[in-house]
């Protein structure tokens, strides 16, 4: 099943990935990381992720560390 992995300690809360996801599966989380940012979370209860990697391609900080398709 397609999915992504997020390293929440690398996320600087620019939230560019949120706009990029065609299925709107990324949202702002509640936790605060060591950078003082609220990192994004991957939220895909219905298994809609396409594995398109647009989020990871956009992310300037490689906080989306892995994308799996299929």
């Amino acid at each position: 099943m397609s999915h992504i992995e997020i390293d929440e300690q690398r996320c600087k809360a620019c939230y560019l990935c949120i706009d990029e996801c065609p299925k709107k599966l990324i949202k702002v989380g509640e936790k605060v990381n060591k950078l003082g940012a609220k990192p994004v979370e991957f939220c895909d209860p219905k298994g809609e992720c396409l594995g398109c990697a647009m989020c990871a391609t956009r992310c300037p900080d490689m906080a989306i560390t892995k994308v799996f398709r299929g």
């Binding site: 099943m1 397609s2 999915h3 992504i4 300690q9 690398r10 950078l35 594995g51 990697a53 990871a56 391609t57 300037p60 900080d61 490689m62 989306i64 560390t65 892995k66 994308v67 799996f68 398709r69 299929g70």
Partner: peptide, 19 residues
Amino acid sequence: ATQVFKVPDSIIKDMTYGF
């Protein structure tokens, strides 16, 4: 599932950009 994205090997492990 096949992995279609990863942190490149040519990036130093476990670093965080200062940008």
